[in-house]
Amino acid sequence: MNILDVVECVEGNLLTSTQNTDREILYGYSCDLLSHVMANARSNCVWVTVQTHLNIVAVASLLDISCIVVPESIEVEETTLQKAEEEKISIIASKLTAFEICGRLYDMGVKPCK
């Protein structure tokens, strides 16, 4: 699936401009502890996290993570969105819980990172 498919699957809103829609998303990872993400997330994966500060963009960019999904309609800082735009990382807001987001993505065939 691509980023727009992820948006649809999690009933989300794309908070950044549309980019990288050609990138195929095969894997998913969910964790709010950044060293766990550094250790386990694969490139081109979707990352589900409640963290919304600037540093999540650096983490995503260093690991070539395609998109970040923020659950429970948590507001994302403007500085984070600007940085994401620069780094070409998509950020999606969803009203669903992290559990349901992961469940739905899993059902659509998105595989765990390990």
Binding site: L33, S35, H36, M38, A39, Q51, N55
Partner: peptide, 15 residues
């Protein structure tokens, strides 16, 4: 609170 402090940084580097 920002998600740092998992205590895995040094072991990630070593790996």
């Amino acid at each position: 609170e920002m998600g740092f402090g998992a205590g895995m940084g040094l072991s990630n580097m070593k790996r």
